[in-house]
Design a protein around this nucleic acid. Sequence first.
DNA 1: TTGAAAGCGCTAACAA
DNA 2: TTGTTAGCGCTTTCAA
Lengths: 370, 370
Amino acid sequence: MSDASGLPAKTRPPTRADVARYAGVSTAVVSYVVNDGPRRVAPQTAARVRAAIEILKYRPNVNARALKKGSTEMLGVVLPDITNPFFAEYAHALEVASVAHGYVLVMATSDGNEAQEGQILNDLAKRQVDGLIISTVLPPSGFHAVALPGRPTVLINCSTPFAGYVAIGPDAREGARLLVDHLITVHRHQSVALIMGESSEPVPEPRERGWSDAFQAYDLPPGPIVRASFSRHGGYEAAARLLNWKTRPSAIFAASDQLCTGALKAIREAGLRCPDDIAVVSFDGTSESEYCWPPLTVARQPIEAMAEAALSAVLNPSSTAAYQRFDTEIVIRESCGCSGRHPGQGPQVVEFDRGSTPVSKTVAEARAPQ
Amino acid sequence: MSDASGLPAKTRPPTRADVARYAGVSTAVVSYVVNDGPRRVAPQTAARVRAAIEILKYRPNVNARALKKGSTEMLGVVLPDITNPFFAEYAHALEVASVAHGYVLVMATSDGNEAQEGQILNDLAKRQVDGLIISTVLPPSGFHAVALPGRPTVLINCSTPFAGYVAIGPDAREGARLLVDHLITVHRHQSVALIMGESSEPVPEPRERGWSDAFQAYDLPPGPIVRASFSRHGGYEAAARLLNWKTRPSAIFAASDQLCTGALKAIREAGLRCPDDIAVVSFDGTSESEYCWPPLTVARQPIEAMAEAALSAVLNPSSTAAYQRFDTEIVIRESCGCSGRHPGQGPQVVEFDRGSTPVSKTVAEARAPQ
DNA sequence: TTGAAAGCGCTAACAA
DNA sequence: TTGTTAGCGCTTTCAA
């Protein structure tokens, strides 16, 4: 029973037609006042409409509008694992950046699974998201096959350009190099093991290259590489294996904070102390790296800046460089063997000249693997 | 130039009409094969349609369908802070549960801000999400004011029923009680400080009540309460304050893992050892609690089970109890003072009889606050 | 300044 | 078994 008042009696949410009827205008006028255009509306008419909106508690149906306009104002973001603090922080930064533009995020997790990533992409396409921000687990060829044609797509967390897409990522090679260089020059390590995630890539990861760059600069052979699944547990297992070897390295570079906290646990369980018995550094610089024990010396990724860049890239696909690389920041804490900071002071951040090559090729007082 | 082939030349994604034209059928038939109903289609016709879909790379526009059907197959989830591992794990569990039902999650973060939560809810309403899953930062009265009428809404992370809504949460009071009881009976602590988030509630939080329940059972006065912002830094500051007091407690119960890891940092910086100088237990049981140092003794929330319950509650609002409480699981690790588990074994999980009252009222060898 | 009406892509009742 | 068509809620051109 809808009566003459124009108030719908049903529980169905009010539509623009209800508002028009209530305010005694046409639906076009309602649209004009809701969108503040494209036609002008007489002030008192507008007021009537606004009152009707208020009374009826009318909320425009964004999906219907999307159908008409071709823009959903939704962005899809797919990450390998929201449970990883690095991605959680990234997700948050993306959300902050996107609300500023009136976009909403549809988030999905690939769980590191290629097939799942493909399904998600397909589903997101059907939902007409206006753009995609993805940390893909696929290689370029595989990604091409499932990517959405016609929707701006930016790949994040890419340490290297990604053929055919606009991509963003940290300068992982240089960050890794700096970190390992610190271990070599300041703490006199001669062998630094690398704990990495498994990679389907045939070509070495930038972190791996940065790690070996550092050794090459001193004509030192790099340490061993151990591969693990990208999780705390993976880091734990990798380190446990490492520590069982006859000559264990005196330091570890973990490719992510998660891997590193896992490694730390293995180190403790082996009865070893960090950094005294074995030093550790990692890549990412999430909040957890600051609060764990010992606090981690890391190459910190500028997550907010990258998230903003990713957002402006999806929103202005035309005016975007194919690849943007962001410098990491080396944050010296205790896990490398540097002494703890004085309580109350901020972390010690070391700025390096980007292009500098090490001054001395001699590493004195070298620590031997033990 | 769209030619006789029916292949659209434009970059505009193909619509059902394109498929119909290409397959030489009506749009209805396309709809029938896409949805596998509600009318039957001749096998070879269906094959033709499927071929056309394949060729044209047609993907049904979910929003248009939603407009027609009134269901977007999107669920809104709003959490205070995706950066908190507890909520990140919750988000992941919710996603796993929802993909199983063909739903997609629109995630938003309130940042603990009431006004922001209201805006998010409003925006989600305009987007016609089919249901809401919220960990609200609002009190019941405030929530009522901004809640979406007409959309199934379930409140998660509620330790107590929430007037007018279906809610889900852990048995925080009992979990807290058990944890503190362990500290009192097994480790002989007489004073356990409580680090809590700020709360706008006039009535004490269940964790606080469980904490004081434990003391009451032995006619002991509870320890001090310190309030902090819900973050690692908050826990850090709270503990730092606590440790500065003339008589510091011998143990701390932190209301969340985040608070606890922050407290741990403060303890270390004060030159104290955990658990030797000060024991610590916390609530949540995220992965981080297992990997930090020392590993945390916690009341673990059954996140997966709660997430599934939340999902089935939004999806079947009618057949759902107003409030579902989930038992936590006490996981004994090292931060309480219990010895480390033997490497290779799982954590030590202690099962308590739910209703048991402590046997002895005498606490021998009590540790005095120091 | 306002209104009528077409149409966004889809579903499903109804007709054939 | 298939086609025609109205209409979901909205925007916007065009005419009044």
